[in-house]
Amino acid sequence: MKLTLKIWRQENATVKGSMQTYSLDGVSPDMSFLEMMDVLNEQLMENGIDPVAFDHDCREGICGSCSMFINGEAHGPDRLITTCQLHMRKFKDGDTIHIEPFRAKPFPVIKDLVVDRTAFDRIQHAGGFVSVNTSGNTQDANALPIEKESADKAFDAAACIGCGACVASCKNASAMLFVSAKVSQYALLPQGQVEATDRVLNMVKQMDEEGFGNCTNTGACEVECPKGISLENIARMNREYLTANLKG
């Protein structure tokens, strides 16, 4: 396959970037999208051009680092996958592919396609945990029975890999899907109840401080989320937030 790639190039966080056009030949349809990027970078280095910086780690859809906005969609045209799970067979010979970094004020570009997503870490630090004393008195996991439905829903919420596709896809750059997944995974379990009030208040506060937009329920996040995190979680977080505020 022969492709035309239009890629966002930006030297560092302080300078302005722009879209640059590269043409790439000999791409196999069996390659993953990141392998295609590797081939491009080899070609660029051979020509003495700085390779395109992009985040990646596991290359199997579990770390959430491979943030790319491909042809106007987070992680490209496919559903329920990350960029590293996208294959070139989804494109046609002669296609032009636009590749941009995930865009949000709280996700500043570090270089090219690499963005700083530590805003998510700070939201997690604000309440995405349970405080348990595990030194020497570890409990049996089955000592606390949990109904199947809640356990399943908590597990589904916990499947969030913190990739940021929800923010990137949302026209408001809202982080509600991510934060609600992190709130829900505890809200659904008895272990999460002790800190429930503080958790939701602190995490939402941190989310707002980071400068993410407001949710208007367009549902774009749910469609683009590689882990199929449901909008139900946002409703749950809104309930938690409401009750937490009423409790004071």
């Binding site: 239009k6 966002w8 879209m19 906005f69 042809n71 106007g72 969609e73 045209p77 636009h98 941009e100 865009r103 949000a104 004020k105 709280p106 996700f107 500043p108 570009v109 896809s169 026209k171 408001n172 750059a173 809202s174 400068g211 993410f212 937009g213 407001n214 208007t216 329920n217 367009t218 549902g219 774009a220 469609v223 683009e224």
Partner: peptide, 28 residues
Amino acid sequence: ILDLQNKKARGIRYKVFKGNSNASWVSR
């Protein structure tokens, strides 16, 4: 006010944004 905040939250705009692919026109 919310709409202004939301536009600001994007920062630099996308060159290509396929809003239609994941959300309805009315909702956006």
